[in-house]
Design a binder for these strands. Structure first.
Lengths: 158, 158
DNA sequence: TAATGTTGGTCAACCTGGTTGTCCAGGTCG
DNA sequence: CGACCTGGACAACCAGGTTGACCAACATTA
């Protein structure tokens, strides 16, 4: 017999995610990245991981190339990346991360880890590690590619 | 030292949520509710819990009343609720849940619980319960009202 | 080499689920 | 009565996706 309902579980998962991410976005804003959205972080990470063109990024993010192109446009606009046509293949536009972009994911990573560390204090290291293992099980058998958080958009803070 | 990064933790939480909800939506579709979105479920639940007008629902969901009105319009369109102006206060439009709407949350609840039960089998009842307790801690100290999942929208399955 | 196919990018239109901002009709209260 | 809430609706907008159509550039192969 369940102490909680499945619907509650969903809300708990989503709520935890929102808490974590909101905290990061909020903190990022105070550290000189006021216009950074979660999706920007994920996108820049994917680019750094090797997605050097729009189509590439699209595949890696699991979204259409049009969506990826929009994201890239936003990143360019905010100065996180630059693009220039590939000299070897003039169809491609190579993406390069700027120092500002590097700064964003560096700070982002740090803040994520800080928040996680706070959770660790509250929960205990072993417990948090186990929680992560358990979550990984749920995600692991997923048809969805975890490297593809197209669904990672999130909304603005209220 | 963390075996995982904070950013990974975020993805785990989001991924688990997505898995759970996608499953429910998918199953709901096969049971006669092909156009049901997660937000519909949450909204109907809120209505059932006492939100009998648009402004009411807005407050309960933590969104603007315009957003709530749009949601209600969608629910009406799909036949999950009906509205009629309050005889006592002709500004208000009282919301009533139809049988179809009741069916939706009944089935929805059942499916949520089924999926949770599967997770319980995989993890063990005690472990899942503990996981929920831990998550509740993260959510518990939140400024965000858990009864207000305005951020519960989610996207279409791909 | 020329024809055919594949790939990268872009434009345009649209959808969902939100947001402001403005406005008014209907109640409430002094 | 007039001065204020409050419920609802209209319009415009935004983010982050989606389809669909299309073209230019590279790749392949007869």
């Amino acid at each position: 017999m369940s102490s909680r309902s499945g619907a509650d579980l969903a809300l708990l998962l989503l709520g935890s995610y929102r808490n974590l991410v909101d905290e990061v976005v909020r903190e990022l804003a105070t550290r000189g990245y006021p216009d950074a959205r979660p999706s920007h972080e994920y996108a820049i990470r994917a680019i750094r991981a090797g997605a050097d063109s729009a189509s590439d990024l699209a595949r890696r993010l699991g979204v259409t190339k049009q969506a990826a192109a929009k994201t890239i446009a936003a990143l360019v606009e905010r100065g996180y990346v630059t693009t220039e046509t590939d000299p070897a293949d003039s169809r491609r536009k190579n993406i390069r991360i700027t120092d500002h972009g590097i700064g964003l994911i560096t700070e982002g990573t740090a803040i994520f880890d800080e928040v996680r560390a706070r959770w660790e204090v509250r929960l205990g290291a072993a417990e948090l590690a186990e929680l992560e293992t358990q979550l990984a099980q749920f995600v692991g058998d997923s048809p969805i590619n975890l490297d593809a958080p197209g669904w990672a958009a999130g909304q603005e803070l209220r």
